[in-house]
Computed example of a mutant assay.
Amino acid sequence: MSETADQAATRRRWVTLAELVAVAGVLIAAATLYLNWSGRRADEAARAAQATSTEHARGVVTLLGTVADGGDALALADSEHVFSAATVTFPKALGVAPQDALPGPRIMSDWFADALLKANEGSDARNGRLPVLISVSWWDGDTKHSQTGLYDVLWRTESRFLRGRKLALTGLTLASRNGTAAALEAAWQRKRAAAKK
């Protein structure tokens, strides 16, 4: 039985319609695949950015100094880190060797009191800032980290009847997260020049 011209045209329309539906299905599947891939890349990028931000935050140290022992010491603390090493370095002009700040960590006034009082002879009652480098190390899992910051040790002198002057520590402020020996010496020179005015 041969098909009529109308039947052949109808059959061709159905074949064409089936082809169009198949092509549309392939396009929809491709668009879905692309959207899923794009969404996964965006999620991975967001996770990587979050991990980098968290890693950076874990690598930043900001020491806080709390007055202890009536001004004879500053207890150093950073809530995010437990330090395995801490060293305080003083300006060369004071002639004070670098000091190990552990256990604690802490800064003791007797490390540099005599040298600082000698460098600031004159009036009995003074306030000032002593630039120091504080180098700390800590472990994060199996990775050792270290950072050296430039800090100012805040101090004041107190006059004592018949016993001269006493140095009291009053606080600690961060001057720069990237401390170097050159920055320490430059900060010391600036503070000495300002004190002479």
Score class of each variant (00 low, 15 high):
E185W: 00
A181G: 12
L184R: 00
L116A: 06
A168W: 02
Y151H: 12
N178C: 15
W111M: 10
F161D: 06
E158L: 13
D142A: 14
A119K: 08
A119R: 08
N127L: 05
L184N: 01
D142W: 10
R160I: 12
N127H: 10
R160S: 11
S137E: 07
V153F: 05
Q147N: 15
R129A: 09
V132A: 09
T148N: 09
A119E: 13
E158W: 06
R106Q: 11
L116E: 02
T157A: 00
S159C: 08
L117M: 14
L162I: 02
Y151F: 12
E121M: 05
G128S: 10
W138E: 00
D114I: 04
N120H: 14
E185T: 06
W138K: 00
L169E: 04
G164M: 13
L133M: 14
D114Q: 15
A182I: 05
L117Y: 10
S146V: 05
T173E: 13
W138M: 01
L154K: 13
L174Q: 15
V136H: 04
F161Q: 06
L174Y: 09
L162C: 01
G171T: 09
R160T: 12
N178P: 09
L167H: 08
N120P: 02
T173H: 14
L133V: 11
T173S: 15
L154P: 03
A168H: 07
N120G: 08
L169N: 04
L133C: 12
K166I: 07
A119L: 04
N120C: 09
L150V: 07
E185F: 00
W139C: 11
L184K: 02
P131I: 00
L117C: 12
L116H: 05
R163W: 06
S176G: 10
D110R: 12
I107N: 03
S137T: 11
L130R: 04
T170A: 12
L154I: 09
V153G: 01
T157L: 01
W138R: 00
G128D: 01
T157P: 00
L154F: 05
L172D: 12
T148S: 12
L169C: 11
E158C: 07
N178F: 10
R106K: 13
W155T: 03
G164P: 04
E158K: 14
T143P: 03
L130C: 07
S109H: 07
V132S: 08
R126T: 11
S176D: 15
